[in-house]
């Protein structure tokens, strides 16, 4: 496989070293892959892509694009010479230019710029909108124009910064599929930043998890979900309870002490017939959430725990349990 992007030991801090935004990050992205960068806000996602785009200079380490070193502590290639496409969170369409002019902006050096711009506009399905200005378009349309503008110069790498965060939940899924279908069609290598793990799970070939500027895990979606390397990663992909001593005792669950264990709330079942570890609990509070209910429970030994179920639960007391193959283990 061809590596399009290589990041080596990259670090960046702000405020004269007081705020470490990116801390010794190492990874690579293969040609044609879609790679998601996931993390809480403040985990360094945006800094990472700004470094890749050349909008920030690193304190340490190297960035290599298509085998060419573009950032190091000795030199930094300016953004305009990196052949990167970028879609900003707020789309950043030029307000005084219409859609066609926006898309043609990056094609200044090409002879067939109008033709190429119309071609990409057709690709994103906005050919009829080419005379319009940004403020005359919906959020989703602006997004697609921004994508067309970024794709027009045929970048070797496409970066998307929180592409769906400004859209409402209804549009989000539809647009996500549309956008990534287009990206797949062009075959461009893409990195996208998101705080929403659903986005990452749905479309990414690989997912990078950042925590406090550190790369904590890089894997395929299913591996990340089933084999998270830390409780932080596990809880990004769904509510997770750490199995502390009290819980282990309550479920009479013989687990080694030198290892950290957790269980996803969704894997705690109220049908205990085929569960290995079982305990009884009192219901303190029921919250109806539409497709399912959330129950806040108090275990016999006083521990609190919440479970989700889509079945009706009668009475104040119930049995809950889980299986050993649902237990997540990390070395911490």
């Amino acid at each position: 496989m061809n590596k399009i992007l290589e990041i080596k030991n990259l670090s960046k801090s702000f405020d004269g070293g007081k705020a470490q935004a990116i801390d010794q990050v190492d990874f690579y992205v293969n040609q044609g892959d879609i790679c998601a960068v996931v993390g809480e806000s403040g985990s360094g996602k945006t800094t990472l892509i700004r470094l890749i785009a050349g909008l920030e200079n690193p304190d340490q380490g190297k960035i290599i694009i298509k085998g060419k070193e573009v950032s190091s502590i000795k030199k930094v290639l300016v953004p305009e010479k990196r052949n990167i496409g970028m879609v900003f969170q707020e789309y950043a369409l030029f307000p005084h230019l219409n859609v066609l002019e926006n898309v043609m902006y990056g094609l200044a050096k090409r002879k067939d710029k109008k033709q190429r711009a119309e071609e990409v506009l057709a690709l994103v399905g906005l050919k009829e909108y080419k005379e319009r200005y940004a403020h005359e378009l919906s959020g989703g349309q602006q997004q697609r124009v921004a994508l067309a503008r970024a794709l027009a110069p045929e970048p070797s790498l496409l970066i998307l910064d929180e592409p769906f965060s400004n859209l409402d939940a209804m549009m989000r899924t539809q647009l996500r599929n549309e956008i990534f279908n287009i990206i797949k069609k062009t075959g461009v290598t893409a990195i996208f930043v998101t705080h929403d793990t659903q986005d990452a799970l749905a479309v990414a070939d690989e997912i990078l998890i950042l925590q406090n500027g550190k790369l904590v895990q890089k894997d395929e979606a299913s591996k990340l979900y089933h084999k998270p390397q830390s409780i932080y990663v596990a809880s990004l992909f769904g509510n997770t309870v750490q199995l502390n001593k009290g819980l282990k005792n309550a479920f009479r669950c013989p687990l080694k002490e030198d290892c950290c264990h957790a269980i996803r709330n969704e894997n705690i079942s109220i049908n205990v017939s085929d569960c290995e570890f079982v305990t009884t609990a009192k219901i303190i509070k029921r919250t109806f959430l539409g497709t399912h209910s959330q129950l806040l429970l108090k275990l016999d030994n006083g521990e609190n725990l919440s479970v989700v179920t889509n079945e009706a639960v009668l009475g104040d007391e119930l049995k809950i349990g889980f299986n050993s193959n649902d237990i997540l283990a990390f070395d911490e």
């Binding site: 785009a53 050349g54 909008l55 300016v78 953004p79 305009e80 010479k81 990196r82 990167i84 496409g85 970028m86 900003f88 969170q89 707020e90 950043a92 030029f94 307000p95 902006y105 990056g106 200044a108 050096k109 503008r149 970024a150 110069p153």
Partner: peptide
């Protein structure tokens, strides 16, 4: 003018 606007222009190849 949001910073991402001039940034976009630079990424699109303008100095």
């Amino acid at each position: 003018v949001n910073n991402s606007i001039p940034d976009s222009s630079k990424i699109l190849g303008m100095g």
